[in-house]
């Protein structure tokens, strides 16, 4: 029972990353692996700045800027150098591993005894409640910014790019720019999430990004299936809730005795099943029709 609040809090902090993955995977229709590097990048930048005395808010903003930059690099590789999106993301991801080590100076940076975004506010709540509250506020801010941005002319052009590049080019929009902007938004959010998770964990680690994309996909798909995809706003809410449900599922299977080392395997199987669901559904339906006919 006492696990519920921390589980929801974790879901909120990670949901910022899931929104980022949603922006590339669903909105832009690109599987962007940059996130595996931009998530620890956010953690690394925030941790490095916190340890030399910057305040947590500017550390998070700097992490966001760094993440955006990494998205722009991937976008440049993909649109200007015509490297396939998947490979462009992998290149950024690998490059970021070294960059992250450089930023931190070592593989792991501890944040113990250092003020984080969860401790700077007047502490009338215990630490657990604080993480939940900060998480809620940040998710709300991120949600509102995204809802506004993707409702503007620029945002609509980015969404249209994901649906149909021919259409949006025929309407006078440079798709190179919309793709780069989408990747910028996405990786900015992923890095913010990395910065938050590092601060809540009390450390940043160069390996903390492993599996980010799969966790993001799991959250997106769980959210879509359980909470709907009617409108863009609906999708944003679904992704946040999906992210929380994912954490709850993980907490439950760990409680049931699954070894933590098997977590990533479990997540991969979960996502595989979810992604192949449409295929099984179609097969099942056609069989049913054949039987009925």
């Amino acid at each position: 029972m006492d696990l519920i609040i921390p589980t929801i809090s974790q879901g909120l902090l990670w949901s910022v990353m899931s929104i980022g993955v949603y922006l590339t995977f669903r909105v832009l229709d690109i599987a962007d692996l940059t996130v595996e590097g931009s998530f620890p990048l956010g953690g690394a930048v925030a941790a490095a700045l916190l340890t030399i005395g910057y305040n947590p808010i500017s550390a998070i903003l700097a992490a966001c800027a760094a993440g955006m930059l990494s998205g722009v690099v991937t976008g440049f590789l993909h649109t200007k150098l015509k490297i396939p999106a998947l490979l462009a993301g992998i290149l950024s991801m690998i490059a970021l591993y070294s960059v992250n080590l450089r930023i931190m100076g070592k593989a792991n940076l501890s944040l113990l005894q250092i003020d984080t975004v969860f401790t700077i506010f007047p502490a009338s709540f215990d630490n657990q409640t604080m993480v939940l509250l900060v998480g809620l506020v940040i998710v709300l801010i991120v949600g509102i910014i995204n809802y506004w941005f993707f409702g503007t002319e620029i945002g609509a052009a980015i969404r249209a790019t994901g649906f149909n590049q021919h259409m949006i080019r025929a309407n006078g929009v440079n798709t190179n720019i919309t793709i780069i902007l989408g990747l910028l938004m996405s990786n900015g959010l992923v890095a913010v999430s990395g910065a938050l998770v590092a601060q809540s964990n009390g450390f940043a680690d160069v390996g903390m990004g492993v599996g980010t994309i799969v966790i993001g996909l799991a959250s997106v798909i769980i959210g879509e299936v359980l909470f709907g995809t009617k409108s863009f706003r609906n999708c944003l809410i679904s992704v946040v809730l999906g992210s929380i449900v994912y954490r709850v599922v993980i907490a439950i299977v760990l409680q049931l005795g699954m070894p933590p080392n098997d977590l990533k395997l479990f997540t991969a199987v979960l996502v595989t099943l979810a992604l192949s669901l449409p295929l099984f559904k179609a097969k099942f339906n056609s069989k049913k029709r054949r039987v009925a006919g």
Binding site: T152, E153, R159, A160, N171, G172
Partner: peptide, 26 residues
């Protein structure tokens, strides 16, 4: 057309053909 967007959103994009998109509501 962009299949996943509303008729209204498609028309809004087309009504601005050739203009640089801005931060105005689409």
């Amino acid at each position: 057309t962009a299949a996943g967007m509303m008729i209204e959103e498609n028309l809004a994009i087309a009504s601005r053909r050739g203009k640089t998109p801005s931060f105005r509501w689409s």
